[in-house]
Write a protein that binds this DNA or RNA. Structure first.
Length: 509
RNA sequence: GGGUCUGUAGCUUAGUUCGGCAUAGCGGCGGACUCUUAAUCCGCAGGUCAAGGGUUCAAAUCCCUUCAGGCCCGCCA
Protein backbone atom coordinates (compact mmCIF):
# COMPACT_ATOMS: atom_id res chain seq x y z
CA UNK A 1 0.00 0.00 0.00
CA UNK A 2 1.48 3.32 -1.00
CA UNK A 3 1.31 6.30 1.33
CA UNK A 4 0.19 9.66 -0.07
CA UNK A 5 3.70 11.10 -0.16
CA UNK A 6 4.91 8.12 -2.17
CA UNK A 7 2.94 9.61 -5.03
CA UNK A 8 5.42 12.49 -5.17
CA UNK A 9 7.53 11.96 -8.24
CA UNK A 10 10.36 14.37 -7.30
CA UNK A 11 13.55 13.29 -8.99
CA UNK A 12 16.60 13.42 -6.72
CA UNK A 13 19.02 14.43 -9.47
CA UNK A 14 16.73 17.30 -10.40
CA UNK A 15 16.45 18.40 -6.77
CA UNK A 16 20.24 18.34 -6.65
CA UNK A 17 20.31 20.63 -9.67
CA UNK A 18 17.92 23.04 -7.99
CA UNK A 19 20.25 23.12 -5.00
CA UNK A 20 23.29 23.71 -7.19
CA UNK A 21 21.54 26.53 -9.07
CA UNK A 22 20.59 28.15 -5.77
CA UNK A 23 24.21 27.93 -4.64
CA UNK A 24 25.20 29.71 -7.84
CA UNK A 25 22.76 32.49 -6.96
CA UNK A 26 20.54 31.84 -9.99
CA UNK A 27 16.84 32.64 -9.69
CA UNK A 28 15.10 29.36 -10.36
CA UNK A 29 11.49 30.49 -10.16
CA UNK A 30 11.44 34.10 -11.38
CA UNK A 31 8.17 36.03 -11.28
CA UNK A 32 7.86 37.01 -14.91
CA UNK A 33 9.34 37.04 -18.37
CA UNK A 34 8.66 39.50 -21.16
CA UNK A 35 7.27 37.12 -23.76
CA UNK A 36 6.66 39.08 -26.95
CA UNK A 37 5.57 36.26 -29.26
CA UNK A 38 3.85 32.90 -29.05
CA UNK A 39 5.29 30.01 -31.00
CA UNK A 40 2.38 30.14 -33.42
CA UNK A 41 2.89 33.87 -34.00
CA UNK A 42 6.53 33.26 -34.83
CA UNK A 43 5.76 30.38 -37.15
CA UNK A 44 3.08 32.38 -38.91
CA UNK A 45 5.05 35.59 -39.25
CA UNK A 46 8.22 33.85 -40.42
CA UNK A 47 6.61 31.16 -42.56
CA UNK A 48 8.71 32.34 -45.54
CA UNK A 49 12.01 32.71 -43.67
CA UNK A 50 15.11 31.39 -45.44
CA UNK A 51 18.49 30.30 -44.17
CA UNK A 52 19.31 33.95 -43.48
CA UNK A 53 18.49 35.17 -39.98
CA UNK A 54 15.55 37.52 -39.53
CA UNK A 55 16.40 41.17 -39.08
CA UNK A 56 14.24 41.73 -36.01
CA UNK A 57 14.58 39.71 -32.78
CA UNK A 58 11.87 37.64 -31.08
CA UNK A 59 11.28 36.57 -27.49
CA UNK A 60 9.21 33.59 -26.55
CA UNK A 61 8.87 31.09 -23.73
CA UNK A 62 7.74 27.56 -23.09
CA UNK A 63 8.59 24.09 -21.93
CA UNK A 64 11.69 22.29 -23.14
CA UNK A 65 10.48 19.06 -24.75
CA UNK A 66 13.75 17.61 -25.99
CA UNK A 67 17.42 18.54 -26.13
CA UNK A 68 19.83 17.34 -28.82
CA UNK A 69 23.34 18.10 -27.72
CA UNK A 70 26.17 18.40 -30.25
CA UNK A 71 29.08 19.45 -28.10
CA UNK A 72 29.63 23.13 -28.78
CA UNK A 73 26.14 23.55 -30.14
CA UNK A 74 22.73 22.13 -29.32
CA UNK A 75 19.20 21.92 -30.60
CA UNK A 76 16.13 21.87 -28.40
CA UNK A 77 12.38 21.85 -28.96
CA UNK A 78 10.43 24.49 -27.07
CA UNK A 79 6.66 24.19 -26.75
CA UNK A 80 3.94 26.58 -25.60
CA UNK A 81 0.16 26.26 -25.85
CA UNK A 82 0.23 27.13 -29.54
CA UNK A 83 2.85 24.65 -30.69
CA UNK A 84 6.51 23.72 -30.74
CA UNK A 85 9.54 25.39 -32.27
CA UNK A 86 13.18 24.42 -32.52
CA UNK A 87 15.95 26.30 -30.70
CA UNK A 88 19.53 26.49 -31.96
CA UNK A 89 22.11 27.41 -29.34
CA UNK A 90 25.82 27.88 -29.99
CA UNK A 91 28.64 28.27 -27.51
CA UNK A 92 30.13 30.99 -29.75
CA UNK A 93 27.01 33.11 -29.46
CA UNK A 94 26.03 32.88 -25.82
CA UNK A 95 29.43 32.34 -24.25
CA UNK A 96 30.99 29.50 -22.27
CA UNK A 97 29.30 30.28 -18.99
CA UNK A 98 25.73 30.40 -20.37
CA UNK A 99 26.32 27.42 -22.63
CA UNK A 100 27.62 25.29 -19.80
CA UNK A 101 24.73 26.42 -17.64
CA UNK A 102 22.27 25.18 -20.26
CA UNK A 103 24.17 21.94 -20.70
CA UNK A 104 24.31 21.18 -17.02
CA UNK A 105 20.99 22.42 -15.75
CA UNK A 106 18.36 22.77 -18.48
CA UNK A 107 16.61 19.56 -19.33
CA UNK A 108 13.41 18.12 -20.67
CA UNK A 109 10.42 19.51 -18.80
CA UNK A 110 11.99 22.80 -17.66
CA UNK A 111 10.37 26.07 -18.68
CA UNK A 112 12.58 28.73 -20.19
CA UNK A 113 12.34 32.03 -22.00
CA UNK A 114 14.55 32.80 -25.00
CA UNK A 115 15.44 35.71 -27.26
CA UNK A 116 17.03 35.43 -30.68
CA UNK A 117 16.48 35.65 -34.42
CA UNK A 118 14.54 33.35 -36.72
CA UNK A 119 16.11 31.30 -39.51
CA UNK A 120 15.57 28.08 -41.36
CA UNK A 121 18.04 25.21 -40.92
CA UNK A 122 19.65 23.35 -43.81
CA UNK A 123 17.07 20.62 -43.31
CA UNK A 124 14.26 23.16 -43.59
CA UNK A 125 13.15 23.53 -39.97
CA UNK A 126 12.08 26.97 -38.79
CA UNK A 127 14.30 27.68 -35.79
CA UNK A 128 15.16 30.33 -33.22
CA UNK A 129 18.87 31.19 -33.24
CA UNK A 130 19.09 31.82 -29.51
CA UNK A 131 21.00 34.79 -28.13
CA UNK A 132 19.84 34.67 -24.50
CA UNK A 133 17.90 32.21 -22.43
CA UNK A 134 16.36 32.49 -18.95
CA UNK A 135 15.30 29.69 -16.66
CA UNK A 136 11.68 30.39 -15.74
CA UNK A 137 10.84 27.19 -13.85
CA UNK A 138 12.90 24.14 -13.02
CA UNK A 139 10.81 20.96 -13.17
CA UNK A 140 11.76 18.57 -10.36
CA UNK A 141 9.63 15.77 -11.81
CA UNK A 142 10.82 14.21 -15.04
CA UNK A 143 8.52 13.79 -18.01
CA UNK A 144 7.55 10.46 -19.57
CA UNK A 145 9.66 8.96 -22.31
CA UNK A 146 10.12 11.28 -25.26
CA UNK A 147 8.95 8.92 -27.99
CA UNK A 148 6.23 6.74 -26.47
CA UNK A 149 5.07 9.40 -24.04
CA UNK A 150 2.48 8.59 -21.42
CA UNK A 151 0.31 5.69 -22.53
CA UNK A 152 -0.82 4.25 -19.19
CA UNK A 153 -4.54 5.05 -19.25
CA UNK A 154 -4.87 5.18 -15.49
CA UNK A 155 -1.98 7.61 -15.14
CA UNK A 156 -3.37 9.77 -17.91
CA UNK A 157 -6.59 10.15 -15.91
CA UNK A 158 -5.03 10.50 -12.47
CA UNK A 159 -2.27 12.87 -13.57
CA UNK A 160 -4.04 14.73 -16.33
CA UNK A 161 -1.46 17.52 -16.14
CA UNK A 162 1.18 15.11 -17.43
CA UNK A 163 -1.20 13.81 -20.09
CA UNK A 164 -1.79 17.38 -21.26
CA UNK A 165 1.93 18.20 -21.31
CA UNK A 166 2.83 15.30 -23.56
CA UNK A 167 -0.30 14.29 -25.50
CA UNK A 168 -1.45 16.77 -28.11
CA UNK A 169 -4.57 14.66 -28.86
CA UNK A 170 -5.64 15.02 -25.26
CA UNK A 171 -5.10 18.80 -25.37
CA UNK A 172 -7.15 18.88 -28.56
CA UNK A 173 -10.04 16.97 -26.98
CA UNK A 174 -10.27 19.46 -24.15
CA UNK A 175 -9.89 22.44 -26.47
CA UNK A 176 -12.94 21.11 -28.31
CA UNK A 177 -14.76 20.55 -25.04
CA UNK A 178 -14.17 24.14 -24.06
CA UNK A 179 -15.27 25.30 -27.50
CA UNK A 180 -18.48 23.24 -27.36
CA UNK A 181 -19.48 24.78 -24.04
CA UNK A 182 -18.73 28.22 -25.34
CA UNK A 183 -20.73 27.57 -28.54
CA UNK A 184 -23.74 26.35 -26.52
CA UNK A 185 -23.57 29.48 -24.40
CA UNK A 186 -23.15 31.71 -27.43
CA UNK A 187 -26.07 30.11 -29.29
CA UNK A 188 -28.44 30.53 -26.36
CA UNK A 189 -27.14 34.02 -25.62
CA UNK A 190 -27.66 35.02 -29.27
CA UNK A 191 -31.22 33.69 -29.12
CA UNK A 192 -32.25 35.66 -26.07
CA UNK A 193 -31.88 33.02 -23.35
CA UNK A 194 -30.70 34.14 -19.92
CA UNK A 195 -28.14 32.06 -18.09
CA UNK A 196 -28.72 31.49 -14.39
CA UNK A 197 -27.13 29.59 -11.56
CA UNK A 198 -29.41 27.63 -9.26
CA UNK A 199 -28.58 25.76 -6.04
CA UNK A 200 -26.25 22.80 -6.10
CA UNK A 201 -26.84 22.15 -2.41
CA UNK A 202 -30.52 21.32 -2.16
CA UNK A 203 -32.66 20.34 0.85
CA UNK A 204 -34.92 18.34 -1.49
CA UNK A 205 -33.41 16.78 -4.59
CA UNK A 206 -35.36 16.26 -7.78
CA UNK A 207 -35.66 16.73 -11.52
CA UNK A 208 -34.48 13.25 -12.40
CA UNK A 209 -34.60 9.70 -11.17
CA UNK A 210 -31.27 9.04 -9.55
CA UNK A 211 -29.54 8.41 -6.24
CA UNK A 212 -28.11 11.57 -4.71
CA UNK A 213 -24.95 12.39 -2.79
CA UNK A 214 -25.78 13.44 0.74
CA UNK A 215 -24.01 16.21 2.61
CA UNK A 216 -24.55 18.03 5.87
CA UNK A 217 -24.57 21.68 6.87
CA UNK A 218 -23.08 22.16 10.35
CA UNK A 219 -24.47 25.62 11.07
CA UNK A 220 -27.98 24.92 9.78
CA UNK A 221 -27.78 21.47 11.34
CA UNK A 222 -29.48 19.85 8.38
CA UNK A 223 -28.97 17.36 5.63
CA UNK A 224 -28.37 18.72 2.13
CA UNK A 225 -28.22 16.88 -1.17
CA UNK A 226 -26.02 17.63 -4.14
CA UNK A 227 -28.35 18.27 -7.03
CA UNK A 228 -29.11 15.50 -9.48
CA UNK A 229 -30.60 18.07 -11.88
CA UNK A 230 -31.31 21.83 -11.94
CA UNK A 231 -34.77 21.29 -13.47
CA UNK A 232 -37.08 22.18 -10.60
CA UNK A 233 -35.28 25.44 -9.86
CA UNK A 234 -35.15 26.54 -13.48
CA UNK A 235 -38.89 25.97 -13.78
CA UNK A 236 -39.39 28.16 -10.71
CA UNK A 237 -37.72 30.89 -12.79
CA UNK A 238 -40.30 30.38 -15.55
CA UNK A 239 -43.01 30.74 -12.89
CA UNK A 240 -41.27 33.93 -11.81
CA UNK A 241 -41.60 35.41 -15.25
CA UNK A 242 -38.32 34.72 -17.04
CA UNK A 243 -39.34 33.15 -20.34
CA UNK A 244 -36.11 31.82 -21.84
CA UNK A 245 -33.61 30.45 -19.33
CA UNK A 246 -30.76 28.00 -19.22
CA UNK A 247 -28.06 26.70 -16.93
CA UNK A 248 -24.86 24.89 -17.75
CA UNK A 249 -25.02 22.65 -14.74
CA UNK A 250 -22.78 20.16 -13.04
CA UNK A 251 -24.97 17.36 -11.71
CA UNK A 252 -24.08 14.70 -9.20
CA UNK A 253 -25.47 11.19 -9.23
CA UNK A 254 -24.44 8.54 -6.76
CA UNK A 255 -24.43 5.70 -9.24
CA UNK A 256 -22.24 3.45 -11.32
CA UNK A 257 -18.98 4.60 -12.85
CA UNK A 258 -18.34 3.24 -16.34
CA UNK A 259 -17.47 4.36 -19.85
CA UNK A 260 -20.70 6.36 -20.08
CA UNK A 261 -21.14 7.55 -16.49
CA UNK A 262 -19.12 9.81 -14.20
CA UNK A 263 -20.50 10.72 -10.74
CA UNK A 264 -20.39 14.40 -11.67
CA UNK A 265 -21.29 15.39 -15.18
CA UNK A 266 -22.30 18.44 -17.15
CA UNK A 267 -25.61 19.25 -18.74
CA UNK A 268 -27.16 22.25 -20.32
CA UNK A 269 -30.81 22.58 -19.34
CA UNK A 270 -33.01 24.95 -21.27
CA UNK A 271 -36.57 26.14 -20.59
CA UNK A 272 -38.62 28.17 -23.03
CA UNK A 273 -42.07 29.51 -22.19
CA UNK A 274 -44.93 29.13 -24.69
CA UNK A 275 -43.11 26.31 -26.48
CA UNK A 276 -43.70 22.56 -26.42
CA UNK A 277 -41.70 19.34 -26.86
CA UNK A 278 -41.80 19.61 -30.66
CA UNK A 279 -40.18 23.03 -30.46
CA UNK A 280 -37.55 21.72 -28.07
CA UNK A 281 -36.66 18.93 -30.49
CA UNK A 282 -36.15 21.64 -33.09
CA UNK A 283 -34.01 23.70 -30.72
CA UNK A 284 -31.91 20.66 -29.82
CA UNK A 285 -31.33 19.90 -33.49
CA UNK A 286 -30.43 23.51 -34.17
CA UNK A 287 -27.94 23.80 -31.32
CA UNK A 288 -26.22 20.47 -31.83
CA UNK A 289 -26.01 20.66 -35.62
CA UNK A 290 -24.64 24.20 -35.48
CA UNK A 291 -21.94 23.04 -33.07
CA UNK A 292 -21.06 20.14 -35.36
CA UNK A 293 -20.59 22.59 -38.24
CA UNK A 294 -18.53 25.00 -36.12
CA UNK A 295 -16.25 22.20 -34.92
CA UNK A 296 -16.00 19.99 -38.00
CA UNK A 297 -17.14 22.15 -40.91
CA UNK A 298 -19.50 19.42 -42.11
CA UNK A 299 -22.40 17.32 -40.87
CA UNK A 300 -20.75 13.93 -41.34
CA UNK A 301 -18.26 13.07 -38.65
CA UNK A 302 -16.39 9.83 -37.94
CA UNK A 303 -17.13 7.96 -34.75
CA UNK A 304 -15.63 4.56 -33.96
CA UNK A 305 -16.18 2.43 -37.07
CA UNK A 306 -19.07 4.44 -38.40
CA UNK A 307 -20.01 7.90 -39.67
CA UNK A 308 -22.54 10.02 -37.84
CA UNK A 309 -24.63 12.38 -39.92
CA UNK A 310 -26.06 15.42 -38.18
CA UNK A 311 -27.76 16.85 -41.28
CA UNK A 312 -31.23 18.07 -40.31
CA UNK A 313 -33.95 16.99 -39.99
CA UNK A 314 -33.16 14.08 -37.69
CA UNK A 315 -35.30 11.00 -37.52
CA UNK A 316 -38.30 11.26 -35.18
CA UNK A 317 -40.15 8.17 -33.98
CA UNK A 318 -42.79 7.56 -31.36
CA UNK A 319 -41.52 4.91 -28.95
CA UNK A 320 -44.27 2.53 -30.09
CA UNK A 321 -43.15 2.92 -33.71
CA UNK A 322 -39.48 2.56 -32.81
CA UNK A 323 -40.19 -0.81 -31.17
CA UNK A 324 -42.16 -1.77 -34.27
CA UNK A 325 -39.38 -0.70 -36.65
CA UNK A 326 -36.27 -1.87 -34.78
CA UNK A 327 -37.60 -4.86 -32.82
CA UNK A 328 -40.38 -5.92 -35.14
CA UNK A 329 -42.89 -5.96 -32.31
CA UNK A 330 -46.31 -4.30 -32.50
CA UNK A 331 -47.00 -3.73 -28.82
CA UNK A 332 -50.70 -3.03 -29.08
CA UNK A 333 -51.39 -5.91 -31.50
CA UNK A 334 -50.39 -8.30 -28.72
CA UNK A 335 -51.91 -9.25 -25.41
CA UNK A 336 -49.84 -8.80 -22.23
CA UNK A 337 -49.38 -12.60 -22.15
CA UNK A 338 -48.05 -12.62 -25.71
CA UNK A 339 -45.72 -9.74 -24.87
CA UNK A 340 -44.40 -11.68 -21.89
CA UNK A 341 -43.64 -14.63 -24.18
CA UNK A 342 -41.87 -12.31 -26.62
CA UNK A 343 -39.85 -10.76 -23.79
CA UNK A 344 -38.80 -14.20 -22.66
CA UNK A 345 -37.91 -15.23 -26.21
CA UNK A 346 -35.76 -12.13 -26.56
CA UNK A 347 -34.04 -12.94 -23.29
CA UNK A 348 -34.93 -9.61 -21.71
CA UNK A 349 -33.95 -9.22 -18.08
CA UNK A 350 -36.89 -9.37 -15.70
CA UNK A 351 -39.18 -10.48 -18.55
CA UNK A 352 -41.74 -11.67 -16.01
CA UNK A 353 -41.88 -8.35 -14.16
CA UNK A 354 -43.83 -6.14 -16.53
CA UNK A 355 -47.59 -6.18 -16.22
CA UNK A 356 -48.90 -3.63 -18.72
CA UNK A 357 -48.50 -2.76 -22.38
CA UNK A 358 -46.66 0.42 -21.47
CA UNK A 359 -44.23 -1.40 -19.18
CA UNK A 360 -43.47 -3.89 -21.93
CA UNK A 361 -43.07 -1.02 -24.38
CA UNK A 362 -40.31 0.50 -22.25
CA UNK A 363 -38.74 -2.88 -21.66
CA UNK A 364 -38.60 -3.74 -25.36
CA UNK A 365 -37.37 -0.27 -26.22
CA UNK A 366 -34.52 -0.35 -23.75
CA UNK A 367 -33.64 -3.95 -24.36
CA UNK A 368 -33.87 -4.12 -28.13
CA UNK A 369 -34.00 -0.66 -29.68
CA UNK A 370 -31.74 1.86 -27.91
CA UNK A 371 -28.47 0.28 -28.99
CA UNK A 372 -29.60 0.35 -32.63
CA UNK A 373 -30.18 4.11 -32.67
CA UNK A 374 -26.84 5.12 -34.19
CA UNK A 375 -27.73 8.20 -36.23
CA UNK A 376 -29.25 11.12 -34.29
CA UNK A 377 -32.81 10.03 -33.52
CA UNK A 378 -35.56 11.53 -31.40
CA UNK A 379 -37.77 9.03 -29.63
CA UNK A 380 -40.96 10.64 -28.34
CA UNK A 381 -44.19 9.87 -26.49
CA UNK A 382 -43.03 8.14 -23.31
CA UNK A 383 -45.35 6.35 -20.87
CA UNK A 384 -46.62 8.63 -18.14
CA UNK A 385 -45.30 6.36 -15.36
CA UNK A 386 -41.72 6.98 -16.48
CA UNK A 387 -42.06 10.72 -16.84
CA UNK A 388 -43.30 12.33 -13.62
CA UNK A 389 -42.40 15.87 -14.71
CA UNK A 390 -43.76 15.76 -18.28
CA UNK A 391 -47.12 16.96 -19.49
CA UNK A 392 -49.67 14.35 -20.49
CA UNK A 393 -49.86 13.82 -24.24
CA UNK A 394 -52.54 15.95 -25.89
CA UNK A 395 -53.93 12.98 -27.88
CA UNK A 396 -52.39 9.77 -26.52
CA UNK A 397 -53.90 8.48 -23.29
CA UNK A 398 -51.29 7.14 -20.87
CA UNK A 399 -48.38 8.89 -22.60
CA UNK A 400 -46.50 12.14 -22.20
CA UNK A 401 -45.13 14.77 -24.54
CA UNK A 402 -41.58 13.72 -23.85
CA UNK A 403 -38.62 12.94 -26.09
CA UNK A 404 -35.12 11.67 -25.77
CA UNK A 405 -32.27 12.11 -28.24
CA UNK A 406 -30.21 9.02 -29.00
CA UNK A 407 -26.90 9.00 -30.84
CA UNK A 408 -24.71 5.94 -31.17
CA UNK A 409 -27.01 4.11 -28.76
CA UNK A 410 -26.38 6.76 -26.11
CA UNK A 411 -28.97 8.98 -24.47
CA UNK A 412 -27.74 12.48 -25.22
CA UNK A 413 -30.82 14.60 -24.58
CA UNK A 414 -34.11 14.51 -22.71
CA UNK A 415 -36.94 16.99 -23.00
CA UNK A 416 -40.64 17.54 -22.76
CA UNK A 417 -43.62 19.76 -22.64
CA UNK A 418 -43.31 20.62 -18.97
CA UNK A 419 -46.08 19.54 -16.64
CA UNK A 420 -47.67 22.72 -15.27
CA UNK A 421 -50.81 21.32 -13.65
CA UNK A 422 -49.96 21.59 -9.91
CA UNK A 423 -52.57 19.05 -8.84
CA UNK A 424 -51.37 16.47 -11.36
CA UNK A 425 -47.76 17.24 -10.41
CA UNK A 426 -48.60 16.61 -6.75
CA UNK A 427 -50.20 13.28 -7.64
CA UNK A 428 -47.20 12.25 -9.78
CA UNK A 429 -44.78 13.15 -6.99
CA UNK A 430 -46.87 11.15 -4.53
CA UNK A 431 -46.63 8.17 -6.84
CA UNK A 432 -42.84 8.59 -6.95
CA UNK A 433 -42.70 9.00 -3.19
CA UNK A 434 -44.62 5.78 -2.74
CA UNK A 435 -42.13 3.96 -4.97
CA UNK A 436 -39.29 5.51 -2.99
CA UNK A 437 -40.79 4.33 0.29
CA UNK A 438 -41.10 0.85 -1.17
CA UNK A 439 -37.36 0.83 -1.85
CA UNK A 440 -36.95 2.34 -5.31
CA UNK A 441 -33.66 4.12 -4.63
CA UNK A 442 -34.02 6.36 -7.64
CA UNK A 443 -37.61 7.50 -7.20
CA UNK A 444 -38.11 11.18 -6.53
CA UNK A 445 -38.88 13.06 -3.32
CA UNK A 446 -41.94 15.29 -3.12
CA UNK A 447 -40.87 18.90 -3.60
CA UNK A 448 -43.81 20.75 -2.04
CA UNK A 449 -42.26 24.14 -2.67
CA UNK A 450 -42.02 23.32 -6.36
CA UNK A 451 -45.66 22.21 -6.44
CA UNK A 452 -46.49 25.46 -4.71
CA UNK A 453 -44.60 27.38 -7.39
CA UNK A 454 -46.67 25.64 -10.06
CA UNK A 455 -49.70 26.68 -8.03
CA UNK A 456 -48.91 30.30 -8.88
CA UNK A 457 -49.09 29.39 -12.56
CA UNK A 458 -46.38 28.39 -15.02
CA UNK A 459 -47.06 29.11 -18.69
CA UNK A 460 -46.97 26.17 -21.09
CA UNK A 461 -43.21 25.56 -21.37
CA UNK A 462 -40.84 23.36 -23.29
CA UNK A 463 -37.67 22.08 -21.62
CA UNK A 464 -34.66 20.04 -22.65
CA UNK A 465 -31.43 18.83 -21.10
CA UNK A 466 -28.43 17.96 -23.26
CA UNK A 467 -25.57 15.90 -21.88
CA UNK A 468 -22.41 17.88 -22.57
CA UNK A 469 -19.92 15.12 -21.77
CA UNK A 470 -21.57 12.70 -24.15
CA UNK A 471 -21.82 15.35 -26.83
CA UNK A 472 -18.08 15.96 -26.44
CA UNK A 473 -17.47 12.20 -26.71
CA UNK A 474 -19.34 12.11 -30.01
CA UNK A 475 -17.61 15.17 -31.45
CA UNK A 476 -14.11 14.08 -30.42
CA UNK A 477 -14.51 10.39 -31.31
CA UNK A 478 -13.95 9.16 -27.76
CA UNK A 479 -15.65 6.02 -26.49
CA UNK A 480 -15.00 6.69 -22.81
CA UNK A 481 -16.44 9.58 -20.81
CA UNK A 482 -13.17 9.68 -18.85
CA UNK A 483 -11.42 10.88 -21.99
CA UNK A 484 -13.56 14.02 -22.08
CA UNK A 485 -13.63 14.87 -18.37
CA UNK A 486 -10.39 16.52 -17.26
CA UNK A 487 -10.32 14.94 -13.84
CA UNK A 488 -12.63 11.91 -13.89
CA UNK A 489 -13.62 10.30 -10.60
CA UNK A 490 -11.11 7.62 -9.73
CA UNK A 491 -10.89 5.41 -6.69
CA UNK A 492 -8.36 6.74 -4.22
CA UNK A 493 -5.13 4.81 -4.09
CA UNK A 494 -4.22 4.77 -0.43
CA UNK A 495 -6.35 3.41 2.37
CA UNK A 496 -4.06 4.21 5.28
CA UNK A 497 -6.00 6.59 7.47
CA UNK A 498 -8.77 8.98 6.53
CA UNK A 499 -7.95 12.68 6.41
CA UNK A 500 -10.77 14.86 7.69
CA UNK A 501 -11.17 18.63 7.90
CA UNK A 502 -10.51 20.29 11.24
CA UNK A 503 -13.48 20.43 13.58
CA UNK A 504 -14.60 23.71 15.15
CA UNK A 505 -15.53 22.84 18.73
CA UNK A 506 -18.19 25.59 18.86
CA UNK A 507 -20.10 23.91 16.03
CA UNK A 508 -20.26 20.60 17.78
CA UNK A 509 -23.55 19.71 19.37
C1' G B 1 -22.15 -7.25 -8.96
C1' G B 2 -20.21 -11.10 -13.00
C1' G B 3 -16.54 -12.23 -16.81
C1' U B 4 -11.87 -11.13 -18.83
C1' C B 5 -7.15 -8.87 -19.47
C1' U B 6 -3.31 -5.87 -17.29
C1' G B 7 0.34 -4.06 -13.30
C1' U B 8 8.45 -5.56 -14.17
C1' A B 9 13.78 0.80 -13.50
C1' G B 10 11.42 7.78 -13.94
C1' C B 11 9.03 6.27 -19.01
C1' U B 12 8.30 2.34 -23.05
C1' U B 13 9.01 -2.74 -22.32
C1' A B 14 11.36 -8.52 -22.82
C1' G B 15 10.90 -12.58 -19.68
C1' U B 16 5.16 -15.73 -17.39
C1' U B 17 3.02 -21.04 -21.85
C1' C B 18 7.22 -25.14 -19.75
C1' G B 19 10.02 -22.26 -12.18
C1' G B 20 16.80 -21.87 -12.57
C1' C B 21 21.75 -14.98 -12.30
C1' A B 22 16.08 -9.43 -13.83
C1' U B 23 16.06 -7.73 -20.43
C1' A B 24 16.63 -3.77 -23.71
C1' G B 25 15.64 1.21 -25.52
C1' C B 26 14.69 6.12 -23.89
C1' G B 27 15.74 9.23 -19.77
C1' G B 28 19.81 10.21 -15.86
C1' C B 29 25.26 10.46 -14.82
C1' G B 30 30.54 10.69 -17.21
C1' G B 31 33.03 11.34 -22.05
C1' A B 32 33.28 12.68 -27.82
C1' C B 33 30.81 15.74 -31.37
C1' U B 34 29.28 23.47 -34.30
C1' C B 35 22.72 22.37 -38.94
C1' U B 36 20.27 18.07 -35.49
C1' U B 37 14.87 16.16 -35.88
C1' A B 38 13.19 9.74 -31.26
C1' A B 39 20.60 13.14 -33.34
C1' U B 40 24.86 9.73 -33.26
C1' C B 41 29.10 7.12 -30.75
C1' C B 42 31.72 5.09 -26.01
C1' G B 43 31.16 4.03 -20.71
C1' C B 44 28.42 3.91 -15.77
C1' A B 45 24.58 3.80 -12.30
C1' G B 46 19.47 2.67 -11.69
C1' G B 47 14.64 -2.91 -9.51
C1' U B 48 9.97 -4.06 -2.82
C1' C B 49 8.89 -7.73 -10.70
C1' A B 50 1.39 -3.82 -7.63
C1' A B 51 0.84 -5.69 -2.04
C1' G B 52 0.54 -9.95 1.25
C1' G B 53 0.61 -15.16 2.01
C1' G B 54 1.52 -20.30 0.23
C1' U B 55 4.02 -24.50 -2.66
C1' U B 56 9.30 -25.47 -3.87
C1' C B 57 16.24 -26.71 -3.05
C1' A B 58 14.77 -22.45 -6.10
C1' A B 59 9.02 -18.02 -7.78
C1' A B 60 8.45 -12.01 -11.94
C1' U B 61 6.82 -17.09 -13.59
C1' C B 62 2.65 -21.97 -10.12
C1' C B 63 -1.56 -21.49 -6.13
C1' C B 64 -4.56 -18.25 -2.70
C1' U B 65 -6.02 -13.37 -0.89
C1' U B 66 -6.00 -8.18 -1.53
C1' C B 67 -5.32 -3.32 -4.23
C1' A B 68 -5.72 -0.36 -8.70
C1' G B 69 -6.97 0.01 -13.78
C1' G B 70 -8.70 -1.32 -19.04
C1' C B 71 -12.47 -3.87 -21.90
C1' C B 72 -17.28 -6.64 -22.11
C1' C B 73 -21.90 -7.69 -19.57
C1' G B 74 -25.32 -6.34 -15.67
C1' C B 75 -27.18 -2.05 -12.91
C1' C B 76 -28.30 3.10 -14.44
C1' A B 77 -36.96 3.65 -15.78
Amino acid sequence: MTSPQDNLAFDQTRLDKVRALKDKGITIFPSSFDRQHTVLEIKTRYADITHDKSAEPVSTAGRVYIVRNHGKTLFADLGDETGKIQLYIRKNDIGDEQFNLFNQFIERGDIIGVTGHIFRTKLGEITIWVETFTLLCKAVCSLPEKFHGLTDIEKRYRQRYVDLIVNEESRQTFRIRSRIISLIRRYLDDHGFLEFETPILQPVYGGANARPFTSYHNFLDQKLFLRIAPELYLKRLIVGGFEKVFEIARNFRNEAVDTNHNPEFSMVEIYWAYRDFEDMMGLTEAIVSSIVIEIHGKFEIPFEDTTLNFQRPWKKLAMVDAVKEYAGIDIYANTVEQLRDLAQQNKLEDWEKSKTHREFLVQFFEGLVEEKLIQPTFIHDYPVENSPLAKRHRTKEGFTERFELFIHGMEVGNGFSELNDPVDQKARFEEQDEKRRLGDVEAQMIDYDFINALGYGMPPTGGVGIGIDRLVMLLTNNVSIKEVILFPSMKKLQEDGEELPAVDASEKK
